[in-house]
């Protein structure tokens, strides 16, 4: 390396631009836990929030959001977005419970994969803005599922394996958490160690440059959308296991929190920058925030306001863009 010599001590403790969001969000998680603990100590006299059971339970609930957010991050890194998440989750869950038996989980994943493939083809080959194309696909999936179920919650139940993956425990550790961990490690390896991962960052920074550098940009975009759809399908399958059945609108509550988790974790909404660790911490932050607010019996109105304010304040601290001057 021919770069200027640096003082090793100062460079070690200086935060890079990508580290700042992660450290800040982690700090904010501690603040949430501290405030919640003070509240429970004051009202109940116990520090419920700091018990391992509580934390593990929160992580189990967070796994569903975390898996969705992992897929969403791949798409956002490309500079795109996937608004078809809600009905991909519901479709994965409904088809998995409909088929049942040993094929339930593969079918749930497959439905997500097909939706992702359609999204990817529309965005990469037809060049339709992802914002509007995935919105249309979401509407079509909703239509298909309403036609399939008759507009009611399907009578079919989740298989035992689905329920085990969602609520089971091994040595006290929720299985859902392990599934999330496996997904996380896979996504992290994909982003850091593979050509596809590097290509995703390159496309997010400037697709034309990536194309000229020989990256098969269309195939990479399709791959990312497929993975995003498949992870949404997986999350839907697990959610169906968690509540023992699929129901209408079960994915609606996951779209905006997933985007928020990715962005709070420092991934740039226009793509090209961000680390998976940030998304992981963003998910934990959102799950804990929701949980603490419900422990405090905050009404829905107050929750929405706090939720929005937190996103804006976090971004004001570290997500500010540069002024366009040329």
């Amino acid at each position: 390396m021919t770069s200027l010599p640096q003082d090793p001590a100062s460079s070690r403790f200086k935060l890079g631009e990508d580290d700042k969001p992660i450290v800040m969000s982690a700090g904010f998680i501690l603040v949430i836990l501290a405030v919640g603990t003070i509240y429970t100590l004051y009202t109940q006299g116990t520090a419920t929030l700091l018990s391992p059971e509580y934390l593990l339970q929160q992580l189990q609930v967070g796994a569903f959001l975390g898996i969705v957010a992992a897929g969403m991050m791949l798409v956002i890194l490309l500079g795109h977005i996937d608004l078809s998440i809600p009905w991909t989750i519901a479709a994965g869950a409904m088809m998995a419970t409909t088929v049942g038996g040993p094929m339930a989980i593969p079918v749930g994943l497959g439905v997500g994969l097909i939706v992702g493939l359609v999204n990817g083809l529309g965005v990469a080959y037809l060049r339709i803005p992802s914002m509007i194309f995935t919105l249309g696909v979401n509407a079509v999936m909703r239509g298909l599922m309403v036609a399939h179920t008759g507009g009611f919650a399907p009578q079919t139940a989740a298989t035992d394996l689905m329920q085990y993956l969602a609520v089971g425990k091994i040595l006290g550790i929720p299985v859902a958490l392990m599934v999330w961990a496996v997904v996380s490690i896979a996504v992290m390896l994909l982003l850091q160690r593979t050509a596809v991962g590097k290509s995703i960052y390159a496309i997010g920074n400037k697709e034309a440059a990536a194309y000229l550098a020989g990256v098969p940009t269309k195939r990479v975009i399709v791959t990312a959308f497929c993975l995003c759809g498949m992870l949404a399908g997986l999350s839907g399958t697990l959610l169906a296991g968690y509540s023992t059945k699929a129901y209408q609108g079960m994915g609606d509550a996951y779209l905006l929190p997933a985007i928020a988790a990715v962005v709070i974790g420092g991934t740039h909404i226009l793509g090209g920058r961000g680390r998976y660790l940030g998304t992981l911490i963003g998910v934990i932050l959102i799950v804990l925030l929701n949980s603490v607010l419900s422990i405090m019996q905050m009404p829905e109105s107050g929750r929405q306001i706090i939720y929005g304010t937190v996103i804006i304040v976090m971004l004001l601290v570290y997500g500010r863009g540069r002024k366009v001057t040329s």
């Binding site: 226009l270 929005g308 971004l315």
Partner: peptide, 17 residues
């Protein structure tokens, strides 16, 4: 200097609240 899409996502939650 926050991207419009994410800024309005957050303010939308506040307005609904």
């Amino acid at each position: 200097r926050i991207q419009p899409i994410i800024a309005t996502l957050a303010t939308g939650a506040i307005f609904l609240g």
